[in-house]
C-alpha cells in the first residue's frame, strides 16, 4: 500500500521525467512507423536517455512502445505507453533522428530543442508525387529488363507500375484498408501488363506480368523482419514477417484477379 502511494507521488511530482518519457516515446513511435528495426529504436532511445542521466527500459511492439524511465539513484520510476500511428516508410525521419541522437549527447540539448528538431523532421517535404511515380515506374521497367524483358515488355512494365502506384496512392488517400490498397494496385498494374499480352506486343515469356507488381513487395518489413530475428527480437520479427506475408497474399490476389479477367 505504502509503495503504491509512493509511486503515485513520484509520478505527480516529477514533470521532468514525464516530459522526457513523452519525448522518448514520440521518438520511438516515429522510428517504428518510419521503418526502423527494433534494435535501432532501443539503442537510439537509450542513447538519448543516458544524456539526461536516466536509465531506460523498453518493450517495443509493432503497434505500441512501452517505456520505463529510472533516475540515477533508482528511487524514481516513470512508466508510460504510446500507440504508434499508421506505418509508412520514411527514411528521411530515420536518418534525421539518427543524426540528432549523436548531437544531443555532444551538445547537451534540452527536451524543447529535441522536440523542435522532431517537428522540423516531420515537416520535411517528400519527393514530388510525379517524381515518385516516374522513378518507381523506371524501377519497374528495370526489373523487367533484369528478368530478361525487351523494349516492348519494359514499356508495358513502366505503364503498369505507373498506373498501379497511382491507384495505390489514391486508395490510401481514400483510407481503404492497407492490404486492400495493395490488392487494388496489383490488380490495376497486372491489368495493364496483361493488355500487352492480349494485344500481342509483349512476350509472356519475359516476365512482364510479374515484374509489374514488384514495386508492391514489402521490402522494408521483409528485411527488418529477418534483421530483428537475427538480433533476437523474435516477437517483432515474427510480426513483421506475417505482415509482409499478408502483403504478398494481397499482391497474389491482385495477380489472380487479372489472370481470371484475361482467362490466362
Amino acid at each position: 500500500m505504502r509503495s503504491n502511494l509512493f509511486v503515485l507521488e513520484v509520478n505527480k511530482t516529477h514533470p521532468e521525467a514525464k516530459e522526457l518519457c513523452t519525448l522518448l516515446l514520440r521518438i520511438g513511435t516515429l522510428l517504428m512507423t518510419s521503418g526502423s528495426n527494433t534494435e535501432r529504436i532501443r539503442k537510439t532511445i537509450q542513447r538519448i536517455s543516458t544524456s539526461f542521466d536516466y536509465k531506460a527500459e523498453l518493450v517495443i511492439n509493432h503497434r505500441s512502445v512501452l517505456l520505463s524511465l529510472e533516475n540515477e539513484n533508482g528511487d524514481e520510476v516513470y512508466t508510460s505507453l504510446k500507440r504508434t500511428g499508421q506505418h509508412g516508410v520514411n527514411f528521411r525521419i530515420l536518418s534525421g533522428i539518427s543524426r540528432m541522437s549523436w548531437t544531443v549527447i555532444e551538445e547537451h540539448w534540452t527536451v524543447d530543442q529535441i522536440n523542435e528538431e522532431l517537428d522540423r523532421l516531420q515537416a520535411l517535404p517528400h519527393f514530388p508525387r510525379i517524381a515518385v511515380l516516374l522513378f518507381v515506374s523506371l524501377a519497374g521497367a528495370s526489373f523487367c529488363r533484369v528478368a530478361g524483358g525487351q523494349i516492348p515488355d519494359m514499356l508495358f512494365a513502366f505503364a503498369a507500375t505507373f498506373i498501379g502506384l497511382f491507384v495505390r496512392q489514391e486508395s490510401i488517400k481514400h483510407a481503404f484498408n492497407t492490404y486492400l490498397c495493395v490488392f487494388f494496385a496489383a490488380f490495376a498494374a497486372t491489368l495493364v501488363a496483361g493488355l500487352g499480352y492480349k494485344l500481342g506486343i509483349a512476350d509472356p515469356g519475359n516476365h512482364g506480368f510479374v515484374t509489374s507488381v514488384l514495386f508492391l513487395i514489402p521490402g522494408v518489413p521483409l528485411i527488418n523482419s529477418f534483421s530483428d530475428l537475427i538480433d533476437g527480437n523474435i516477437q517483432t520479427g515474427i510480426i513483421r514477417g506475417i505482415n509482409s506475408l499478408i502483403y504478398s497474399f494481397a499482391i497474389a490476389l491482385g495477380l489472380l484477379a487479372s489472370m481470371f479477367v484475361y482467362q490466362m
Partner: peptide, 24 residues
C-alpha cells in the same frame, strides 16, 4: 555489365519511394 545500370535504377526507384534524403 548491363545489369549494373538496371539494378541501379531499380534501387533509386525504391529509394525515392522510401523518401530517402536526396544527398544519398
Amino acid at each position: 555489365a548491363e545489369k549494373f545500370i538496371w539494378c541501379g535504377f531499380a534501387a533509386v526507384g525504391f529509394a525515392v519511394l522510401f523518401n530517402v534524403p536526396s544527398r544519398t
